[in-house]
């Protein structure tokens, strides 16, 4: 039965007997390579469920260190991890959950300089980032490399999920929002706040979609944007169409190279924002 060792037969027993996975599906998971961008609120449940499911190779990327304010939602880290590198802390948790999983930590900022190199080896990419510059970069590069992108985002009590599947006239993030919002039109960071369980729900949906893509089962969340409102406990879906005018995946693309948008979140209201320049490497703000 698909070359499982004794431990694997027991560990994955509930998958192996599950219609939709079975021995062949579990083998696909063991052979899969998934990159999780961000070891934060979304990345925590995504990476933990992928490790538990036996996804053979998991990459996890983050440049940050664990902060006490993270622990209200970033369940991959524990109190003792405060001050440690997030990817180091995350890798340890994943190995504890499942020592059979090979974890590749990327303790770095994703930029136009390294994005293609980082993303290229992976089968599926899960977006658990918290800022527009990296979101656009990940979208663009996954489109060019032909890697499915499992999208999730959260704000206060609301979350969004969708899947961007390159090719076949399926939409990408830029079909939904062609450009990042100009500085000053998004709320200041101090207005943020996030319900701690929210990334658990949105991230678990991302893990579900990533696993479905690996298995090739069910209906992927493609062309549909799932909107979750925790306050109203309401899930709704709106249609996302492929835009033939999309600057990245449209008929005549105008964006063909990775862009580093300036990080503008965190500005003091009224303060002049930095000019967003294309093609100039910048760091992603904290």
């Amino acid at each position: 039965m698909s070359d499982f060792n004794e431990e694997q037969v027991v560990r994955y027993a509930r998958h192996i007997i599950l219609p939709g996975i079975g021995g062949a599906g579990q083998r696909k998971l063991l052979d899969a390579k998934v990159l999780v961008i961000g070891a934060g609120g979304l990345g925590s449940p995504v990476a933990m469920y992928l490790a538990a499911a036996g996804v053979g190779k998991i990459g996890i990327l983050d440049f940050d260190k664990v902060d006490l304010t993270n622990l209200q939602r970033q369940i991959i880290h524990t109190t003792g991890d405060v001050g440690r590198s997030k990817v180091e802390s995350a890798a340890e948790t994943l190995q504890d959950i499942n020592p059979g999983v090979e974890v590749t930590p990327y303790d770095t900022i994703l930029s136009s300089q390294n994005a293609s190199e980082v993303i290229e080896p992976w089968d599926v990419v899960v977006d658990g980032t918290d800022n527009f510059p990296v979101r656009y970069l990940v979208n663009d590069v996954t489109q060019w490399l032909g890697r499915p992108l499992v999208y999730g985002s959260i704000y206060q009590w609301e979350g969004q999920n969708t899947v961007f599947l390159p090719g076949k006239e399926a939409p990408c993030y830029r079909c939904l929002y062609p450009e990042p919002p100009p500085p000053g039109t998004v709320p200041s960071c101090a207005e943020g706040g996030v319900f701690g369980v929210l990334p658990g729900i949105v991230g678990s949906i991302q893990a579900t979609e990533a696993i479905k893509l690996i298995l090739g089962v069910g209906e992927p969340l493609v062309g549909r944007l799932l909107l979750f409102d925790a306050m109203a406990m309401d899930f709704t879906t709106v249609k996302v169409k492929w835009d033939p005018e999309c600057p990245v995946c449209g008929k005549s693309p105008t964006i063909t190279e990775p862009i580093d948008y300036d990080q503008f979140c965190g500005l003091v209201p009224g303060q002049a924002p930095p000019e967003a320049e294309h093609g100039v490497p910048t760091t992603v703000g904290r």
Binding site: L42, T129, I154, Y155, C189, A190, E191, L225, V238
Partner: peptide, 16 residues
């Protein structure tokens, strides 16, 4: 009618 702004998520991280 639903109004849906682009949301980056996790902004709370930067309020610290």
């Amino acid at each position: 009618i639903s109004i849906l702004p682009a949301v980056a998520g996790g902004w709370a991280d930067r309020s610290r």
